[in-house]
Amino acid sequence: MRYEELSAEQALSAAKDPGSIFIIPVGSVEQHCGGPLGTDLMIAEGVAEAACEHLTSSEFKCYMMPAIGYGLSAEWSLAPGTVSLSLSTFEGLIEDVVRGLLRLGAKSVVIVNGHYGNSPAIEAALRELMRELPHDAVILQVNYWEALGIDVGHASEAEAEVMRALGYNVNFGRCGCEASPSPRGAKVYVRPPRPRHS
């Protein structure tokens, strides 16, 4: 069920139900060579919808939140079509949406992330919320590539395969641009993927 289609009374009732899970897809709008600017968003929404369908067929009730379409894509800010949020805006948006659900009474919130660059900021936003979480609330960040156990890269064949699996006919082709370097030559490192245990 889509959250935006609920009445206020239905939303309150859903939040009070301990079997309710609220899923927030989060993506980005950035160049993907010859592919859609919203690739990461489309994947996040597709994965979230599939998760909702699966959960709804079990004993849970799943509510799809309106997607957060814009993310952190500063490295592609010079590429045509890219729209990136500032770090403070993005973290604040994540915190405020989750906080709104918690205020309503939601106990289970899942963020399905479709863009690698969003990961550390989502984690930081959730850590910021930890001190105000009710003791029985569960907030989960799911990076789709980690859940699938794949390394997708950017505009790669693996990412195209995920898009095709979701029903999109995508061919990224060759990129005519590269990530923007730092004007001062700085390099940014993020944590490597967690090792998978067999």
Results as ranks from 00 to 15, higher is better:
Ala179Val: 04
Arg196Val: 15
Cys175Ser: 15
Val170Trp: 03
Gly185Arg: 12
Tyr168Lys: 07
Ala179Glu: 13
Met163Lys: 00
Arg194His: 09
Tyr168Ala: 10
Val190Ser: 06
Val162Gly: 03
Pro192Asp: 09
Gly176Thr: 14
Pro192Trp: 06
Cys177Val: 15
Ala179Phe: 02
Leu166Gly: 02
Pro183Ile: 07
Val190Cys: 00
Gly185Tyr: 10
Ser182Tyr: 08
Arg164Gln: 10
Ala186Val: 04
Val162Met: 11
Met163Ala: 12
Gly176Asp: 13
Pro193Ala: 11
Arg184Val: 08
Arg174Asp: 14
Gly173Ile: 13
Arg164Asn: 06
Pro192Gln: 08
Asn169Gln: 13
Phe172Ser: 04
Cys177Ile: 15
Ser182Arg: 02
Pro181Gly: 05
Gly167Ser: 05
Arg191Ile: 01
Lys187Met: 13
Phe172Pro: 05
Val162Ile: 14
Arg191Thr: 03
Tyr168Val: 05
Pro192His: 08
Val190Ile: 14
Gly167Leu: 07
Cys177Thr: 15
Gly185Val: 12
Gly176Asn: 14
Pro183Asp: 09
Arg164Ser: 02
Ala165Thr: 03
Tyr189Asn: 04
Tyr189Cys: 01
Phe172Asn: 04
Asn171Ala: 11
Gly185Leu: 12
Ala186Lys: 07
Ala165Leu: 08
Ala165Gly: 05
Gly173Arg: 06
Ala165Asn: 13
Arg194Tyr: 09
Pro183Ser: 10
Ala186Tyr: 15
Pro183Ala: 08
Arg174Met: 09
Val162Trp: 03
Tyr189Asp: 05
Pro193Leu: 06
Asn171Met: 03
Arg196Gly: 00
Pro192Arg: 12
Val190Trp: 10
Ala165Tyr: 04
Gly167Met: 05
Ala186Asn: 13
Gly185Phe: 06
Val188Ala: 10
Leu166Val: 03
Ala179Trp: 00
Met163Ile: 02
Gly185Lys: 11
Val188Asn: 01
Gly173Thr: 12
Cys175Leu: 11
Ser182Trp: 10
Asn169Phe: 03
Gly185Cys: 10
Cys177Asp: 04
Glu178Gly: 12
Glu178Trp: 00
Cys175Phe: 11
Ala186Ile: 02
Arg191Met: 12
Met163Trp: 02
Val170Gly: 06
Tyr168Gly: 02
Glu178Asn: 06
Pro183Arg: 10
Arg164His: 07
Val162Cys: 04
Arg196Thr: 13
Ser180Gly: 00
Lys187Phe: 11
Arg196Pro: 00
Pro181Trp: 01
Gly176Trp: 06
Asn171Gly: 05
Arg164Trp: 01
Arg184Tyr: 10
Phe172His: 05
Gly176Pro: 03
Met163Phe: 04
Arg191Gly: 09
Tyr189Leu: 15
Gly176Leu: 14
Arg194Val: 10
Phe172Arg: 01
Ala165Gln: 12
Leu166Tyr: 04
Pro183Val: 10
Ser180Ala: 14
Pro195Met: 07
Arg174Ser: 14
Pro181Gln: 05
Pro192Gly: 09
Glu178Tyr: 02
Phe172Ile: 05
Asn171Tyr: 06
Glu178Gln: 09
Lys187Thr: 14
Gly176Tyr: 07
Tyr189Glu: 12
Tyr189Lys: 08
Arg174Ile: 11
Val170Leu: 06
Val188Cys: 00
Glu178Met: 06
Arg191Asn: 09
Phe172Thr: 01
Lys187Arg: 15
Ser182Phe: 09
Lys187Trp: 07
Glu178Asp: 06
Arg164Lys: 14
Glu178Ser: 13
Ser180Cys: 05
Pro192Leu: 13
Ala179His: 02
Cys175Gly: 15
